[in-house]
Design a protein around this nucleic acid. Sequence first.
DNA 1: GTTTAGCACTCAACCAATAAGAGTGCTAAC
DNA 2: GTTAGCACTCTTATTGGTTGAGTGCTAAAC
Lengths: 342, 342
Amino acid sequence: MEPTERKMKILEAVVEAYIKSGDPIGSKAICDVLDFNVSSATVRNDMAELAGLGLLEQPHTSSGRVPTELGYRVYIDDLMKPQPLGKRELTAIKDKLDMSSDTPEKLLETAADILSRITGCAAAATSPPGENALIRHVRFVHTGSYTAMAVLITSLGSVKPKLFRCEYSVTPSLLEMFDKAINERLTGMPVTAVTPAFIQSTAISFGDMSMIMPSVLLAVSEAAKEASADGTAIRGQENLFSMPELDPADGKKVMELLGQPRELNKLISAAEARSGALIGSELSHPALKNLSVIAANYTAAPQCTGSLALIGPLRMNYPKVISTLAGVADVVGESLSELLDI
Amino acid sequence: MEPTERKMKILEAVVEAYIKSGDPIGSKAICDVLDFNVSSATVRNDMAELAGLGLLEQPHTSSGRVPTELGYRVYIDDLMKPQPLGKRELTAIKDKLDMSSDTPEKLLETAADILSRITGCAAAATSPPGENALIRHVRFVHTGSYTAMAVLITSLGSVKPKLFRCEYSVTPSLLEMFDKAINERLTGMPVTAVTPAFIQSTAISFGDMSMIMPSVLLAVSEAAKEASADGTAIRGQENLFSMPELDPADGKKVMELLGQPRELNKLISAAEARSGALIGSELSHPALKNLSVIAANYTAAPQCTGSLALIGPLRMNYPKVISTLAGVADVVGESLSELLDI
DNA sequence: GTTTAGCACTCAACCAATAAGAGTGCTAAC
DNA sequence: GTTAGCACTCTTATTGGTTGAGTGCTAAAC
């Protein structure tokens, strides 16, 4: 066996042993695991070289070795073997997804829930970008003498309700008129096109009804605005508590981060660009220094894609987690595509 | 001053000092805080008696005193003075609530968010019980050649969408027929009345359309089932990380608990029954042994009430938190009542 | 040149002993 | 009933010694 090949095998063994145990790995332990017969001294020499290359490090002068971030990176990119989910597991997941497919959002929540349970990480699922959505319909419902509800449904299956209040009495027949008038004008429009300017010009075009239309149109535009926003489902945050490498202050920061779809999306797309995993300081976020973000894309249709992501400890079972995520992403794409009938 | 009165003053002072500092409180510190002139020895005697009554305890033989659960209980029930929110703060909260009043659910999410920010606790807001809801309307939207969406709106302003798939091609005109036929029969019904049996008998009554109705009715019944479920908004879970008395394993349990509306509701109603606060072991839940649950009722209408709750450390500023919760509950009731126009 | 055995060395983890400090409980006097 | 004084207790911080795992190095073997 070539010496560099052996070193890579040793690196692989160190990473995998460390992932399992969490304790620094000594040369003797590696000898026991590896099947080619070399003494611990040889392994020791190789490990010293690996440390020189920045792939391993020692917590203190004289304890075992631990992978560095670079070590993990090499392991992820070149060494690890995927551990895909079995067919049975995948169909079980598909069934669960299909059971909860009230709306795409619900389906993605379920996906995040499943992922967090399987992996023990916190899981996120981003909805397909709302900007691409078209207005499918706006429905109106009578809810009180002076209140009504606009319900906007988009081409992506998103439902955005908005209660609103009129200064004039609202009757069911009036609402039917709204319904007709508004859907005539708005159906098929991109949600992003419902700007204040558009609302204003539309309001004028209503002539007779222009007394009441402003509050109606305002409600619709707010619903459209929400529909164009990116939604993200998060599940399994409780798993952050089981990550000993995460100190409480950072844990709080991470939870806050999970509540900010923008920041989170940035991280997720960065992770996708880097072969699906961004680890430790690669995330360039101090609170995440001991964590990794794993991401994968799902595709329901050419214009209808999103991401699944996992946040877990730096020391995680990358082959398993990455393969699981990829498998679930496939299934989510399938389910979503069936759900949306595209 | 009566001796028992003085003891109560001392208990109050110990609780308040401990809430502030988190360290055990010595007799000298109490002397400094209290304005009546007694020596530390006298305070010491009184504190010994309070300890004998089970109101104070010592972490070790010779450190200051710390309130026991019973001590907190007496403080909450008899000693503390409310610290209500100012008018300006209340109107600011009201404004925020009204800004985000797309639906009652959204409003309650905002309320939980505000509460968690003000108090630094985790906050929960339960929706008015869905069982009381009536079906206001069921709307249908065409989403694909073989798919459509039913959108159920309840008298409580809840919106439950449900995508479904038909074996026969779905056209807009067909959906209009559904709309008419179903709303004729269901509008005004309690959501709980949409049972499988009811669905079955209704399906039969459709005669001609009975080929297609099953999938439609199934969708409606599932939406109704969801509408009758109790919803709970949770915010500020990240604050659990800043509670040093909560060890990670318990933190995880608490997060899981927050995800189970049933269990949580039980705790909340128990807390409401006990003058709005349930502390430590009163919660009879091992993971909550160092935490307190504070709860308050909001009322938007006689049949439309729910609860706000806070989960925080046992050592919390009860007067402030309880008063804040009461204030916010009032405002939520107001906002919700306006929103629902009842 | 590569591998191995042997051995001295390093450093964290654990334990015990000591010192300092905060605060009590008790007693005797007021 | 209250207070001053004092001995006592117990935590916390510090120090020093011991143990053990695992390394790095050197010299010999392959």
